[in-house]
Amino acid sequence: MKDRRNAIDIQELAWFKSSHSSGEGGQCVEVAARAGSVHVRDSKDTTRPPLSFGDDQWSSFVAYAREA
């Protein structure tokens, strides 16, 4: 059973595209932050459910990405 509250919450998020996005149809993601979670989705197919991460998971990912 689909939880309608979660579906509505995802629709209400403020999504931000990468500043590195050229807008020419390349591969791009959008990110939306909310207290306690960060959501990531494909900017070309926003009908698919986003990936959701807790604050600690997201912080670990960002720290790893900075080192790479």
Rank of each mutant, 00 (worst) to 15 (best):
M1R: 07
M1D: 04
M1S: 14
K2W: 10
K2R: 07
D3S: 15
D3K: 08
R4H: 13
R4K: 15
R5H: 04
R5V: 12
R5W: 12
N6P: 10
N6I: 11
N6A: 10
A7P: 01
A7S: 07
A7C: 02
I8A: 04
D9Y: 12
I10M: 09
I10H: 06
I10Y: 04
Q11C: 12
Q11N: 05
Q11E: 12
E12Y: 13
E12F: 14
L13Y: 04
L13W: 05
L13T: 04
L13D: 04
A14S: 14
W15H: 12
W15A: 02
W15M: 09
W15L: 06
F16P: 01
F16N: 04
S18D: 08
S19F: 12
H20G: 14
H20W: 08
H20N: 13
H20A: 15
H20D: 06
S21Q: 05
S22R: 05
G23R: 01
E24P: 01
E24G: 06
G25T: 14
G25Q: 14
Q27N: 11
Q27I: 12
V29N: 11
V29E: 13
E30M: 02
E30S: 05
V31Y: 00
A32H: 07
A32I: 10
A33M: 15
A33Q: 11
A33T: 15
R34I: 01
R34E: 10
A35Y: 00
A35T: 03
A35F: 00
A35H: 02
G36D: 08
G36E: 08
G36W: 06
G36T: 05
G36K: 07
S37H: 09
V38L: 11
H39C: 14
V40I: 00
R41H: 07
R41G: 01
S43H: 00
S43G: 11
S43I: 13
S43A: 15
K44M: 08
K44H: 01
D45H: 05
D45M: 07
T46G: 03
T46W: 03
T47H: 02
T47V: 09
T47E: 02
R48S: 13
R48A: 05
R48N: 09
R48E: 08
P49C: 00
P49N: 00
P50Q: 07
P50G: 03
P50C: 11
L51A: 04
L51D: 15
L51E: 14
S52P: 03
S52R: 09
F53E: 07
F53V: 04
G54F: 11
G54Q: 12
G54Y: 12
G54A: 10
D56C: 05
D56T: 11
D56Q: 01
Q57T: 10
Q57K: 05
W58R: 03
F61Y: 07
F61L: 05
V62L: 13
V62W: 13
V62N: 13
V62P: 02
V62G: 14
V62R: 06
V62M: 06
V62A: 15
A63C: 04
A63F: 09
A63L: 11
Y64F: 10
Y64D: 01
Y64M: 10
Y64H: 13
A65P: 00
A65T: 07
A65F: 12
A65G: 02
R66M: 03
R66H: 08
R66S: 04
A68D: 14
A68H: 12
A68G: 08
A68L: 14
A68K: 15
